[in-house]
């Protein structure tokens, strides 16, 4: 079995984020990291691979530049190899374009199962996994909070508005996982060292026989209406009184 995990390399969200006024794209920081959301997908894939008796786990990623720093984190966790599609034309790529690139890589590496996060931390469109599935003609088992593989049958607990559904499908398929689904492992020292020599294949759009036309554009980025700070008090052992007053004022109590 071969498991492809879609991963995104993003600018560290804990650092200040800015938008380039000309390209209207998010400025990429000096350091790209593996999106936290994707660590869950990598962890799930590694566990499923163990259960399946040593399946290959291939990280697939897309970036406008030749970025691999974030992918190395996933390799350090234990993934077998990675494929990164880089092309300047992919700057500002929308979700469908991204899905076309990823689906094309899935076909190229002949994976049976694709795992992805529900949405990225920076762009958060939230449609890429189901778009990849649709492009491949596979079922999309989305918003999984638990996932199991029995033989060639996938079984997930899919988050719903008021609980969860148990959803099943035979492979091949695409699964999107919510955060919190498992505790991602930290890369070990040995893992970090071995990640440096794991294969990372760099592809261009041409290598995949793809050309892209991005059919959406950002027109403007403006300040939103701001909220201002109100009263701030220190809890000296009686701050509950302040809160009670406020609750009475707004007639909650």
């Amino acid at each position: 079995m071969k498991v492809a995990v879609c991963v995104k390399q993003i600018s560290d969200p804990s650092e200040a984020q800015t938008i380039d006024p000309t390209s209207m794209c998010l400025n990429r920081g000096a350091k790209a990291i593996l999106d936290d959301s994707d660590a869950y997908g990598v962890e799930i894939a590694l566990r499923l691979a163990e259960v399946a008796g040593g399946a290959e786990v291939v990280l697939i990623s897309m970036a406008p530049n030749q970025e691999v720093q974030g992918v190395r984190t996933g390799l350090a966790m234990g993934a077998t190899s990675a494929v990164v599609v880089s092309d300047p034309q992919l700057a500002g790529a929308d979700a469908l374009t991204t899905a076309k690139v990823l689906a094309s890589v899935v076909k190229r590496i002949d994976a049976d199962l694709v795992i992805a996060a529900t949405e990225s931390t920076d762009g958060y469109t939230g449609t890429v996994p189901a778009q990849v599935a649709a492009l491949l003609g596979w079922p999309a088992l989305t918003f999984a909070k638990q996932i199991e593989l029995r033989g060639s049958t996938l079984s997930i607990q899919r988050q719903t508005e008021d609980g969860y559904d148990v959803v099943e499908a035979d492979l091949p398929g695409v699964v999107s996982v919510t955060a919190g689904v498992v505790e991602p492992r930290y890369p070990s020292f040995k893992g970090i060292m071995s990640a440096k020599s794991k294969p990372v294949e760099q592809l261009s759009l041409g290598d995949l026989g793809l050309s892209v036309a991005i059919d959406e554009k950002v027109l403007a980025v403006n300040d939103a209406e701001a909220r201002t700070a109100g009263q701030i008090v220190e809890d000296d052992g009686s701050a509950e009184a302040e809160i009670m007053n406020y609750l009475a004022q707004i007639k909650v109590l």
Binding site: P139, A140, S155, V166, A169
Partner: peptide, 15 residues
């Protein structure tokens, strides 16, 4: 009937 429509809801749980 489509190939992609193989995801079946086996059971639903309300939390």
């Amino acid at each position: 009937n489509s190939q992609a429509n193989r995801a079946v809801i086996v059971s639903s749980h309300v939390e």
